[in-house]
Design a protein around this nucleic acid. Structure first.
Length: 589
RNA sequence: GGGAUCGUAGUUCAGUUUGGUUAGAACGCCGGCCUGUCAAGCCGGAGGUCGCCGGUUCGAGCCCGGUCGGUCCCGCCA
């Protein structure tokens, strides 16, 4: 190219007046007045108005006339102060303009599928097809810059703390536990497959055994499961592992990393230590293992009142070992007509398998509507006084099996908070959830499965329960939850062969199977494995919080749709027959 | 695997309730006018397999069945 930029489109000010400069960039808008022509030239640093004046350069004005949006040009010119009354105070470069003396058209753009100046001007599938254009929008340019700064902040802090950065294999052995693996067929080994890592879990443990006591990696992970607004099939983790540490050391480091990132990127001060809550408490109080604690509205234990009511559903469920819990929405009963409560009930039925949702409204200090007639007067008075109920409050009741009661009331808590705008924006509320159960009973396979993963160490206080009451054993596992998002999760690992074998046994994996699947790790444990533990941050979710978006596709340069397809390059795609043949693969159907 | 919802010019949408002449608007695009705008303005023009397949009907953008794709949710995500 002839005219290489000497400055960017975001940096010229009145200090540069009378300097000759060259700008390169995309045309954001053009304003043709028949005589004078204005172009706003854009690059990722900003926009500058460049002006073509037919009195001075008539031949350039003719050429500029046919330029349109998103053409790429280079211009040489003199920086001038804009005439009086023509200053644009909404842009940083609004006091100056570039009077063009030389123009090089680098590339012209076809008519655009949507406006780069307005991200809402195209539907999401169209924007994904032309993702490189969407990435030119101001919003995504900012988020990508934020993401880049976060990589940098993370690396700088971990390096300063003495961590070594590693790369671990992307082609690895398939692990049966956990999420579905993405598989890669081996050409050389007929009928065998590599798997893409769900996480580099085993490798980082082996690096601990190798003596690299502080490891980290910013790494892609792959899980072949169905997607959500905050889940992509490939996503990024800040993966961390440390030797000779206990839970508090890992939590301390995770706190410093999170504090550092929010300080560096948003200049937001998180507390020096984050609050903690047990898994049990989180479930009982918020109906979630990742509670959003930006607002109160806690779940209330209601069994002691429910048993004194005349409501058969409560009594039957309690007798059957179920639960009754309640949720109070303050000062909003008038907004919850029969239709609204019916809709909420239908929603809970559909998604959480709940049989019903009961409620009462407060009319002055008396129960009204819903199931109020099942509450004797003296019981009403006691509840009103115990719970501090006031006029126009509405109390929702859920009664079902324990887990279903907690989960659905937790979902209702979030839904009501959204409807009533109870969630304060601009607040970031971190929380460590601790003492997760080691195991989870799986109805389908009628066995225990590891709740976190099978390398998670049991809490030493509960080890004696491992065989007698496995469901009660707590793990040394911890999650960092921010604003209701699971942002990081980790555990202290098992580091002895004996304990690892006991764990495999608990989840119904016999010695032969354990050998076949994790023999390499069990073998390594025999050669001096140090006590170790770690944590992994969901990097994309962290960026979501920093950017204030609820969609993970906003923070990934080239994301996939909810059917795990890329609309831009049309992956996944069919492959040639000979490619399949080389891989010894034959398609059914 | 299940549920909800959306699909109409290049794009964003209206039209679907109640089937009926030539499917509209805005932005973008093309042409013309216009020398200080910054979402420039004014005038004109081109642009449609109403996602796709089938059905009902004299007649379907509109009703019915199926299908494909986007989004959100449940299951799933150690």
């Amino acid at each position: 190219m002839r005219l290489k930029r000497t400055v960017t489109c975001g940096q010229l000010t009145t200090a540069n007046i009378n300097q000759e400069v060259i700008l390169n960039g995309w045309i954001a808008t053009s304003r043709d007045h028949g005589g004078v022509i204005f172009l706003d030239l854009r690059d990722r640093y900003g926009k500058t108005q460049v002006t073509f004046n037919p009195d001075q350069t008539p031949e350039l004005a003719v050429e500029a006339k046919r330029l349109g949006m998103e053409d790429v040009i280079a211009v040489r010119g003199m920086v001038r102060a804009r005439p009086d009354g023509n200053i644009n105070s909404t842009m940083p470069t609004g006091e100056i303009e570039l009077i063009v003396s030389e123009l090089e058209v680098l590339n012209e753009a076809q008519p655009l599928p949507f406006l780069v100046s307005d991200r809402e001007s195209g539907s999401e599938d169209l924007r994904l097809e032309y993702r490189y254009l969407e990435l030119r929008t101001e919003e995504l340019q900012k988020i990508m810059a934020m993401r880049s700064k976060t990589y940098e902040s993370t690396r700088r802090r971990l390096s300063a703390e003495g961590f070594m950065e590693f790369e671990t294999p992307v082609l690895m052995k398939s692990t049966p536990e956990g999420a579905r693996d993405y598989l890669v067929p081996s050409r050389i080994h007929k009928g065998r497959f590599y798997a893409l890592p769900q996480s580099p879990q085993t490798y980082k443990q082996l690096l601990m055994i190798a003596g690299f006591d502080k490891y980290f990696q910013i790494v892609k992970c792959f899980r072949d499961e169905d997607l959500r607004a905050d889940r992509q099939p490939e996503f990024t983790q800040i993966d961390i592992e440390m030797s000779f540490v206990d839970q508090d050391d890992v939590i301390g480091l995770a706190t410093r990393i999170a504090r550092g990132i929010f300080k560096d990127i948003l200049d937001y001060e998180l507390p020096e230590t984050f609050p903690t809550m047990s898994y049990k408490n989180a479930m009982e109080t918020y109906g979630s293992d990742k509670p959003d604690i930006r607002f109160e509205m806690e779940l209330i234990e209601f069994a002691r009142y429910a048993e004194k009511t005349d409501f058969a559903v409560f009594k039957d469920n309690l007798a059957a070992g179920g639960r009754v819990k309640a949720l109070v929405l303050k000062k909003a009963a008038d907004k919850y007509s029969r239709k609204v409560t019916d809709d909420l009930t239908a929603w809970l039925k559909t998604y959480y398998g709940l049989k019903g949702l009961a409620f009462v409204k407060l009319e002055q200090s008396d129960f009204s509507a819903g199931i109020s007639k099942f509450f004797p007067d003296d019981l009403q008075k006691k509840i009103v006084s115990d719970l501090g109920l006031e006029h126009n409050d509405i109390v929702f009741f859920v009664s079902d099996t324990g887990p279903r009661t907690l989960q659905s009331l937790g979902a209702l808590r979030l839904e009501l908070a959204k409807r009533e705008n109870l969630i304060p924006k601009d607040i970031i509320s971190p929380l460590f959830v601790l003492d997760f159960p080691l195991l989870d009973w799986d109805e389908d396979s009628q066995r225990y499965i590891a709740m976190h993963h099978p390398f998670t160490s049991p809490n030493p206080e509960d080890i004696e329960l491992m065989e007698s009451d496995p469901g009660k054993v707590r793990a040394r596992a911890y999650d960092l939850v921010i604003n209701g998002y699971e942002v990081a999760g980790g555990s202290i690992r098992i580091h002895t062969r004996e304990m690892q074998s006991r764990m495999f046994e608990l989840i119904g994996m016999d010695e032969a199977e354990a050998q076949a699947r994790f023999g390499f790790l069990l073998k390594a444990f025999k050669y001096g494995a140090p006590p170790h533990g770690g944590i992994a941050f969901g990097f994309d979710r962290l960026i979501m919080l920093l950017a204030g978006t609820e969609n993970i596709r906003d923070v990934i340069a080239f994301p996939k749709t909810t059917s795990a397809a890329s609309l831009m390059d049309e992956a996944p795609s069919w492959v040639d027959e000979h490619q399949l043949k080389e891989l010894h693969i034959k398609l059914l159907d």
